[in-house]
Each structure stands twice: as structure tokens, then as C-alpha cells.
């Protein structure tokens, strides 16, 4: 063997470069297991600037294990490659959230993209809540945000992604760039929900009514693991309780409850998701919502 292998860069050889090969990798792999009735974080392997704080149990020792994911840089720039994975073993229950909004900064002069890939694997009888604070895309940001949820057996998962395009407060709308948001949810390997949201302000769909309709904030909330009858009842409750307007809608397809928001207000989207979570949590997970304190700070 004389040829030098040209492997893809890994976290080890990433670093500051200012050309099209720019890449800065960070990863975080979490593992949860239930032992003696308590969910323990048994793995927290990280590379690069991604960390977790010590898990805590605000709902009592046998309640959900709450974990804050920290990304000290606070945002993604060109070339960043974040890989987050969490694996929940049978019977465990974890709530993952973040202490602040995730910012997607303007691409560098080479237009290099960032990527954030989240893989969530939930075993039979385990419950995962994936409740990150919102993502704010600055004008010119380019990248891909993929979320994969692999459920096994009777696993349950409730999660959301809230994405705000541009910074309306600073009158800096999202008028260039491209973000590719994707979701893939499977149960026992079978795809139940696939979604692709290419966000390109220069494409007709960005303003077209069949597409974004000019919305600068979008949210997608999913809940998987409710039986169809319970899910239908939960949808009735959501429609009754949540504000009556056309900026959000909820539906149930192939066993996955989906609530979508298309509008222009981050606070409206967040309040909607949080309220839906409070109503869905007891039905899906059998416990009352316990607001992570970090959301209040």
C-alpha cells in the first residue's frame, strides 16, 4: 500500500482554515439507562466545543433525567459540523434542552455551509423529550440541520424545532443563504415521518402560499407513541386550549402527531410549543410538565 488514503476530516484534524475546506467538528454522544428505577446518564462522550452539565432530577429521583446541552461558542459558523446523539435504553426517561438560542451565523466569503446532525435513538419503553431552545438564522447563513429519531418497540418521543429566520428586532431579515432542515422518524426501522424544508429566500416557495408564505418563524412539534384514540383526544384538547388562529395546525398521520407553526413571532411559536408540550406530556408520558428552569432565565 503506497497510496495515501484521503479520508474525510474528523474531529482530530479539524481546525481553522479559511478556504472551502474549512471544517470545525464537535460531537456529543449521550447514553441513558434506567437502573434501580432511576434514569442515569451512563455516557457523555464529547469532542470539540459541545458539553453537558451534570444531569439533575427536578421531578424527583425516579422522574425524568434533565440535561442541558451546552455549545459554548453559542452558534454555528461556516464549516462547523455538530453531531449530537442520544441513546435511551429500555425504560429510561430523559429531557434534553439547551440554555439559550442556537445562532446560525452568516456564511464566510467562500459560502461554506455548517451542519448539525442530531440522532436520537429510543429503545422499547423509553421516553425522550427533545426540547432545544430556538434556532436563529442570521441573514446569509448556509447549512443543514438534520434530525433523525429512531424509535424501537413502544418508545415514546416528544420534541420540537423552532427556527427563526433573520433578526426582526434589528431589522435584519433573512434575504440570502440557504438552510436545509430535515426530519426522519422511524419505528423499528420503518419510516413514519419524513420531512424536508429547504429554506431559500430567493425561491418562489419562500413567499408562495403553498410554501413558507413569507413566514419568518416556523416550528415543528412531534409526538410519537400515543395510541390513535389517545392522539385524537389530545388533538381535540389542543384545538380547544391553544389560541384560535391560522398560524398553527395539528394533525395525526401514521401514528405521529405533528403540530406546525408558520408565522413571524418567535414568542408566539415558543408559547404554542410549550403549551402543547404541557398538554401532551401527561397524556404521552404520564407525568405533569415540569418547566426547565433554564427557560425562565
Amino acid at each position: 500500500m503506497t497510496a495515501i488514503s484521503q479520508a474525510l476530516p474528523t474531529a482530530h484534524d479539524s481546525g481553522h482554515r479559511f478556504d472551502t475546506e474549512r471544517r470545525w467538528a464537535a460531537s456529543l454522544a449521550l447514553g441513558f439507562e434506567r437502573r434501580d428505577g432511576v434514569t442515569r446518564m451512563v455516557q457523555a462522550r464529547h469532542q470539540g466545543p459541545l458539553r453537558v452539565q451534570r444531569p439533575f432530577f427536578p421531578e424527583g429521583r425516579e422522574g425524568a433525567c434533565h440535561v442541558y446541552l451546552l455549545h459554548p461558542p453559542g452558534g454555528l459558523v461556516s464549516g462547523d459540523a455538530l453531531n449530537i446523539s442520544a441513546r435511551l435504553a429500555t425504560g429510561s426517561h430523559a429531557l434534553l434542552t439547551t440554555p439559550a438560542a442556537n445562532k446560525l451565523y452568516k456564511a464566510d466569503s467562500q459560502g461554506v455551509a455548517w451542519q448539525q446532525h442530531t440522532r436520537l435513538s429510543v429503545d422499547d419503553g423509553a421516553s425522550l423529550e427533545w426540547l432545544p431552545q430556538e434556532t436563529i438564522a442570521f441573514d446569509g447563513s448556509r447549512g443543514a440541520q438534520h434530525t433523525e429519531i429512531a424509535l424501537h418497540g413502544a418508545a415514546r418521543c416528544l420534541g420540537w424545532e423552532v427556527l427563526a429566520l433573520g433578526r426582526p428586532a434589528s431589522q435584519l431579515p433573512y434575504v440570502s443563504g440557504r438552510i436545509d432542515q430535515r426530519f426522519r422518524l422511524t419505528r423499528d426501522g420503518k419510516p413514519l415521518w419524513l420531512e424536508r424544508q429547504p429554506l431559500d429566500p430567493l425561491h418562489p416557495r419562500f413567499h408562495g402560499r403553498w410554501g413558507q408564505g413569507g413566514a419568518s418563524v416556523q416550528a415543528t412539534l412531534w409526538a410519537a407513541g400515543l395510541g390513535d384514540a389517545d392522539a385524537t383526544a389530545a388533538i381535540d384538547v389542543l384545538r380547544e386550549a391553544l389560541p384560535d388562529n391560522n398560524r398553527w395546525a395539528v394533525t395525526l398521520r401514521h401514528g405521529v402527531l405533528l403540530l406546525r407553526y408558520l408565522g413571524c413571532e418567535r414568542n408566539e411559536a415558543w408559547a404554542l410549543c410549550q403549551q402543547a408540550w404541557e398538554l401532551l406530556r401527561p397524556r404521552l408520558l404520564g407525568c405533569q410538565a415540569h418547566t426547565p428552569r433554564i427557560w425562565l432565565t
Binding site: 430535515r182 419524513l194 420531512e195 424536508r196 424544508q197 429547504p198 416557495r205 408562495g208 402560499r209 403553498w210 410554501g211 413558507q212 408564505g213 413566514a215 416556523q218 391560522n246 395546525a249 395539528v250 394533525t251 405533528l258 406546525r260 408558520l262
Partner: peptide
């Protein structure tokens, strides 16, 4: 994969 968030919203409504 489709990219029809508005249509999806209309259909759910």
C-alpha cells in the same frame, strides 16, 4: 421529498 409547508398547514386546517 415535498417542500409544501403552506399546503401542509392548509390541509391540517
Amino acid at each position: 421529498g415535498p417542500a409544501l409547508p403552506g399546503l401542509a398547514m392548509a390541509s391540517a386546517l
